[in-house]
């Protein structure tokens, strides 16, 4: 065996990134030369030792505070709608424990009271008339009963194409967080998420990650102040 291999090549071989024909040449040389095999083994063992000491650190549970602070930084940077931030602050202790139950892809399994089997919130479909009427007039921060459900309006904003949208929550067996956008006289649901119910209404902040992503994707503007909201809702 006249060929020689330096440690760099042995390492590239060990890491599986040495190209042919060199790879096969190293493989053959190792078979034939125990001293070369020993050098290879040192290089492999040194790397494995580092992995054994440090790799498990990524499996440690993330401190909730770190996650919350990074999420807040992301939210602040993306100019996210203010009410979320206020809510996120209020729900920090809950956030870690709660998880999004489901992102709805069809009619949400929640029905208005009175035995009428019509979904109150269904993606892409026009809203139930009662809900349409309330979204068109109820100021953000208000609450009203719709059959056995409670509707809570959260914010009103416009998207990149100046379409008027509202974020709202419907409390029933589950809390559904949704955004509906106005299309002529109709409100269409753009996204709806079932969140586990929280004690005092308001979906836990952690349920809102998907909503945040959605709002980012439509380039949602800041929430309209009350007067501007009333004016926008009154405008056809």
């Amino acid at each position: 065996m006249t060929q020689s291999f330096d440690d760099t090549e042995l390492m590239a071989f060990a890491d599986g990134v040495l190209d042919e024909p060199r790879f096969s040449e190293v493989a053959a040389a190792i078979e034939a030369d125990p001293r070369l095999a020993e050098r290879l083994e040192l290089i492999v063992a040194g790397g494995k030792a580092a992995g054994a000491v440090f790799a498990p650190l990524a499996g440690l549970p993330l401190p909730g505070e770190l996650t919350a602070r990074v999420k807040a930084a992301i939210a602040a940077h993306e100019g996210r709608v203010v009410p979320f931030r206020r809510r996120a602050a209020a729900w920090l202790p809950v956030a870690a424990a709660a998880a999004v139950a489901a992102i709805a892809v069809g009619p949400i399994a929640y029905f208005a009271g009175g035995g009428r089997e019509a979904p109150l919130v269904a993606i892409g479909a026009p809203l139930a008339p009662a809900l349409t009427a309330e979204l068109g007039r109820l100021p953000s921060g208000a609450e009203t009963r719709l059959g056995s459900a409670v509707l809570r309006t959260i914010a009103t904003f416009t998207d990149a194409s100046a379409t008027l949208c509202r974020e709202f929550e419907v409390d029933g067996p589950l809390t559904t967080v949704a955004v509906a956008c106005r299309n002529g006289a109709e409100w269409r649901v753009a996204i709806a998420i079932d969140a586990p119910p929280a004690n005092d209404g308001y979906a836990p902040a952690s349920s809102l990650a998907a909503l945040d992503a959605f709002l980012g994707s439509i380039d949602a503007g800041p929430p309209l102040p009350p007067e501007a909201e009333a004016e926008a809702l009154a405008r056809p």
Partner: peptide, 23 residues
């Protein structure tokens, strides 16, 4: 690459190759 190979070799020599093998 050369620095990394040196680092890996050095750790294994320091530790003893037998120990490195177990890890």
């Amino acid at each position: 690459m050369s620095r990394l190979a040196r680092a890996r070799r050095r750790v294994a020599e320091d530790l003893g190759v037998e120990s490195g093998r177990v890890l």
